[in-house]
């Protein structure tokens, strides 16, 4: 039976009208998704057109300079690399340990709930506030100065909530039967976690940590606040040296008036996006290679 058989012409017309509205709405909604993609493409094309001619070997080997043709990202790349390594070394063990505690040991009491609410609140604190914390606590409080270590400690606190949340999800995904089997043959809680839960959860934990690292690498504001510099013309010697990173060097070049520096900034952005792409690809590959099924 067809709808037109039992609907009056007026009702039929109204139904068709309602369906037309539906089609129109679907089109609008699709456009809302597509406009985001269009903006993304425009941004990438704009950056590549501006930056590609400046993407040459000198960009990687030269220090910053007052002359655009001599300027490069050498000190910024060193800073970003070392900042990433130190931040990873600090945030991975602390974050995973916190996740293990919350998932495997914590009892359901006010203290645990307090920690959980606290972590979700910390994830919503603007990154520049972490910069002020780093300035007050690490730069002046612990007297680390405007050093790489102060920057890495600030970044560690910034990405810890992300690492903890990702690790907790990975640990929670390990089935209960694995733990029960371990307890059943007499393993202690820590032996169970170390030998059984962690190996299964590791792919998820690593993926989450790498994604958190890509946030740390792209972050600019907190490092400006703790006083990372832009004009550094020597190789990084240690964690207590003053430093600069890729996003700050890009920011500095954007704010210079000459057109050449802005194109240099675009080239820097291509490098930064390349590093992030590399990290994210690694995360995806790790997730596939290490994933265990049960």
């Amino acid at each position: 039976m067809n709808t037109s058989d039992f609907l009056s012409p007026v009702e039929l017309q109204r139904l068709q009208q309602r369906k037309r509205y539906g089609k129109l709405f679907e089109l609008f909604a699709l456009m809302a998704v597509l406009i985001g993609i269009v903006v993304l493409l425009t941004l990438l094309i704009d950056v590549f057109l501006d930056g590609l001619p400046w993407l040459r070997p000198e960009l990687f080997t030269q220090f910053p300079s007052r002359f655009p043709e001599k300027a490069g990202l050498r000190s910024a790349l060193q800073g970003t690399l070392w900042l990433a390594v130190i931040t990873a070394v600090l945030s991975f063990p602390i974050g995973v340990a916190a996740a293990i505690y919350l998932e495997e040991y914590a009892q359901d009491n006010w203290f645990t709930r307090f920690i959980e609410i606290n972590i979700s609140n910390l994830a919503g604190v603007p990154s520049i506030i972490y910069g002020l914390l780093g300035l007050g606590l690490f730069v002046y409080g612990l007297n680390l100065g405007r050093s790489l270590l102060a920057g890495a400690l600030t970044m560690t606190l910034l990405i810890l909530p992300t690492v903890i949340v990702a690790s907790r999800e990975a640990i929670r995904a390990v089935p209960r039967s694995i733990r029960l089997a371990a307890f059943g043959v007499g393993a202690t809680p820590w032996q169970t976690v170390r030998d059984h839960v962690l190996p299964y959860a590791m792919s998820g934990i690593l993926t989450g940590t790498i994604l958190a690292m890509s946030r740390a690498i792209g972050e600019t504001a907190p490092l400006i606040t703790i006083g990372a510099l832009t004009y550094i013309r020597f190789d990084l010697r240690g964690p207590l040296d003053i430093f600069t990173v890729l996003p700050i060097q890009i920011f500095n070049w954007i704010s210079l008036p000459q057109k050449e520096f802005q194109q240099l900034a675009a080239a820097g952005i291509i490098v930064l996006l390349g590093v992030l792409l590399l990290l994210n690809t690694t995360a995806i590959i790790l997730r596939i290679r290490l994933q265990k099924r049960w």
Binding site: P93, A98, A106, L157, L160
Partner: peptide, 28 residues
């Protein structure tokens, strides 16, 4: 002893988040 030490260590790591909040509030 080892189990207890480990559990305490893990607890301290979880408490870092509270110390961070405390640090932010006190510094500001």
């Amino acid at each position: 002893t080892v189990e207890r030490l480990i559990q305490t260590g893990l607890l301290i790591c979880a408490a870092v988040s509270i110390l961070t909040t405390l640090g932010i509030v006190l510094t500001l």
